[in-house]
Design a protein around this nucleic acid. Structure first.
Length: 498
RNA sequence: GGUGCCGUAGCCAAGUGGUAAGGCAGUGGUUUGCAAAACCAUUAUCCGGCGGUUCGAAUCCGCCCGGCACCUCCA
């Protein structure tokens, strides 16, 4: 099955054929950096990071650009409130954004250009559009003339004339048509400004994306992503000005992710009750749980957020962590040290029923990803794979004391390890479980380890002596400290933080 | 008023013409000294409602009800 992608432009799923395979250019709208990131800001990055991982796995060479918009009215207002400059504000907020991306294992971004570093490119486009009569200066501002673009509205499927009906477009005597939008905004005294032939000013909201995507990906590129709320006016305007400027098709596939809601309402800075800041969330939840929530449903669906939702996801993902620990016990290796795949191909199953099952789960997973990146279905298949792996391990004495290494069991162990390697391969496509959780026993210092070893040794002696009252008390009191004990058959006891 | 999206078990969620994946929660069982973990079984005669098309529909069409987003800044 080949990859199919839903395209907002055509409102249908299309076969994915890059403009210049194996190269793929992908641009995703990043934040305007005037306040710290909330959970909603992470949906796009996580989804498109997963898109890049999958495309890379499929053999494409993806160049991914995410812009940082570091000049805007909102920045100016917020910086004034804080009594600081927009530069200082932008740097602080950008740093917060980068920390969030790192925490959620969003590693695929190749370029993160700042709008203020591309003022020349922005002015070049603006001047060109004015010279050709597609835009016009007006009292220090420059507006794009929507009526000059015959197919304006094709992305958001709107009729420009209809836009007047709602009468919610910013009215301005400076515009010829209510739908016209600013390429350049003249500055008032005291505001940040760059010199231009139209007078001192700053870029309008949409132009930076046109300038920076062209700079890094060329006039035409493959994928443009962003939140559904950006379709209009942001992407529509970006599309109009870009194609008017270079007269080439701008983007082949427009992908828009659904928005996060809280109690049914969109998470939005203008609705303060809904805002859940990432820096607060990361204190309470494993990043994999947050990433898992985002990937648990289809990217175009809205996700309703709540702490109990994250708790649920967390309980579900535990099954994976438990299996990884089992793998470490069986193999003497660490699951997290298994190598990442770079290119997929079928692996030899030698006709064994177990490996055939693993291969089947893998195919189902890849089919789901091929169907417009259906991560919800893909993740579900991973649960099935985990069950298959556990079942096999239950049926073969892979664990426990080495009692005479029969050849058939050695073979079983090799097969099982191969099966787990496939799980590693697929979890890395989703960007999940790349590293052990911060709360794991592995993160504790050596001293804690030695104390636990001592405690577990004493408890083992108690159990040998059938003093279950005391050994259970130890376990219960450790549970109260959020340390979980698991007694294995054979006398071994594992511990971990709950 | 215009443009889109959604409504599947207690909760989350996949499935877009062939007879309901998966997760959480629950119940019974295997295992265990008891737990934990794991495994097995079980939980929607039915997919918001009413009509229609079809041999056959959660899936297509029409109408209705309910929820959301965009048309103003938002990922």
């Amino acid at each position: 099955m080949s990859l199919r992608v839903y395209n907002t432009l055509t409102q249908s799923k299309e076969e994915f054929v890059p403009l210049q395979a194996p190269h793929v250019g992908m641009y995703v709208c990043g934040p305007t950096v005037y306040s710290d990131s909330h959970i909603g800001h992470m949906v796009g990055p996580v989804i498109f990071d997963t898109v890049k991982r999958y495309l890379t796995f499929e053999g494409y060479q993806v160049t991914w650009v995410v812009n940082i918009t570091d000049v805007d009215d909102k920045l100016i207002i917020q910086a004034a409130k804080n009594g600081t400059s927009i530069k200082v504000l932008a740097e602080a907020v950008t740093a917060d954004y980068l920390r969030c991306l790192e925490a959620l294992n969003v590693t695929g971004i190749d370029h993160m250009p700042r709008a203020t570093e591309y003022i020349n490119e922005i002015l070049e486009i603006t001047e060109n559009l004015v010279e050709r009569g597609l835009a016009y200066p007006s009292s220090g501002d420059v507006y794009f003339d929507v009526s000059s673009d015959a197919d304006y509205g094709k992305l958001s499927h709107r009729d420009p004339e209809e836009l007047q009906v709602g009468a919610r477009i910013e009215p301005s005597a400076l515009k010829k048509h209510p739908g016209d939008f600013a390429l350049w905004k003249g500055s008032k005294p005291g505001e940040p400004a760059w010199e231009s032939k139209f007078g001192p000013g700053r870029p309008g909201w949409h132009i930076e994306c046109s300038a920076m995507s062209m700079r890094f990906l060329g006039p035409s590129f493959d994928i443009h992503g962003g939140g559904l709320d950006l379709v209009f006016p942001h992407h529509e305007n970006e599309l109009a000005q870009s194609e008017s400027y270079h007269e080439k098709p701008f983007v082949k596939y427009w992908m828009h992710n659904g928005l996060l809601t809280k109690n049914g309402r969109k998470i939005s800075k203008s609705d303060p009750d809904t805002v859940v800041l990432m820096k607060d969330l990361l204190v309470k939840f494993e990043p994999d749980i947050i990433r898992g929530l985002i990937l648990s449903s289809h990217y175009r669906s809205p996700i309703d957020f709540g702490n109990s939702r994250l708790d649920e996801i967390g309980r579900g993902l535990k099954a994976f962590r438990n299996l990884f620990e089992r793998f470490d016990r069986v193999s003497g290796l660490s699951f997290y040290s298994l190598a990442a795949p770079t290119r997929h191909g079928d692996f030899g199953t030698d006709g064994t029923p177990f490996l055939e099952q693993v291969a089947e789960h893998r195919r189902t997973f890849l089919d789901a990803m091929n169907d417009d990146f259906n991560t919800g279905a893909a993740l579900a298949e991973l649960y099935e794979l985990v069950r298959t792996l556990n079942r096999f391990a239950d049926q073969h004495p892979l664990e426990g004391p080495a009692t005479g290494q029969f050849v058939p069991e050695t073979l079983a162990k090799d097969q099982w390890i191969l099966g787990v390697t496939v799980l590693r391969e697929l979890t890395l496509i989703l960007g999940l479980f790349e590293a052990p959780p911060a709360s794991s026993s592995q993160s504790d210092d050596a001293f804690v380890g030695q104390l636990m070893e001592l405690l577990l040794h004493l408890r083992a002696e108690l159990r040998k002596a059938k003093n279950f009252g005391l050994s259970d008390e130890i376990r219960d009191r450790l549970t109260a400290l959020n340390v979980v004990l698991e007694d294995r058959s054979g006398g071994q006891t594992n511990w971990k933080r709950g």
